[in-house]
Design a protein around this nucleic acid. Structure first.
Lengths: 157, 157
DNA sequence: CCTGAAATTGCCGCTAA
DNA sequence: TTAGCGGCAATTTCAGG
């Protein structure tokens, strides 16, 4: 996972589209779909993995079906933007599995979190006992997901 | 992808953890890791795929490395909650690749969108020319991602 | 445990700077 | 001529029965 900026041609983009659609597709099949033989196809995939274009492969789970039907987005403001406060906060976030995504944001609130929970009680525990007590947290604002219209999105290529 | 609610035992959870970590792991290796032989391991995987617990497999791309370095979360309020307005809005969202995730939300704003773009100009085009003209859109509020702390998250099991 | 299929590697040929 | 890319074929490993 290096960081070189590599140019992608149409073949690469086709490969990425196919792999986003089905991350376990057989290389042989993929190669056929994009109009290559397996060898150069695999070579391109490896190159994009090395370059960090393909970050990883994953199984996408349905949170509701694994017992985590509650999803929320939480905006968080910190009371201080000192680096050590931010670092401590990041560390606290990292240790919490229910935070499935976290972003530092521009604008009024400093962070956006995507959180899953088994039920409202578990969510409340997280929000009140964990999140609000994390280092530097000044204010939080939770909104719950009622319905996922586009659950896991592919990146347009 | 049925919808039966199936109980997961510790073995299933281990399988899911491994598949979230590496969606292309070989069944043989996975089986060894979780302490099963390949055949029953594969059976469990198929069962969870059928049940929709495993929704799909995907390659996770780094948006910045495929030319989409701008990410934003956009909250959207509709002027009407009539079903036909909402449906038209959902349809408009679906046709926009830069919207990589969309959720109907509780609370003040009706929707939360996760959007990627090649640059601010492209983002502005989306926000001003596409989103604001979608059916029923009353108000939008964009916040930009400065840094992804937990980019693509796994669901805790 | 066995058989067919897939992944992976080495090697060769083609094409363009 | 050399660097880069694609294809073929052989080998090893995997999937699925």
């Amino acid at each position: 996972m290096a960081n070189s900026t590599i140019a992608l041609d149409e073949l690469d983009r086709r490969i990425l589209r196919a792999l986003q659609q089905d991350g376990r597709i057989a290389i042989t099949l993929l190669a056929e779909q994009v109009g290559l033989s397996a060898t150069p196809c695999l070579r391109r995939i490896r190159r994009m993995e090395e370059a960090g274009i393909i970050a990883r492969y994953t199984a996408v789970l349905d949170p509701a079906r694994v017992g985590l039907p509650i999803q929320a987005f939480v905006q968080v403001a910190l009371s201080s933007h000192a680096e050590e406060v931010a670092t401590a906060f990041h560390k606290a976030l990292a240790s919490r599995g229910e935070v499935i995504a976290a972003y530092a944001m521009s604008g009024g609130m400093d962070y956006m979190l995507h959180v899953v929970a088994a039920d409202f009680e578990a969510y409340a525990d997280f929000a009140l006992k964990a999140l609000l007590r994390m280092p530097g947290v000044k204010e939080t604002r939770s909104s719950f997901v009622l319905m996922a219209l586009k659950p896991p999105g592919a990146i347009p290529l």
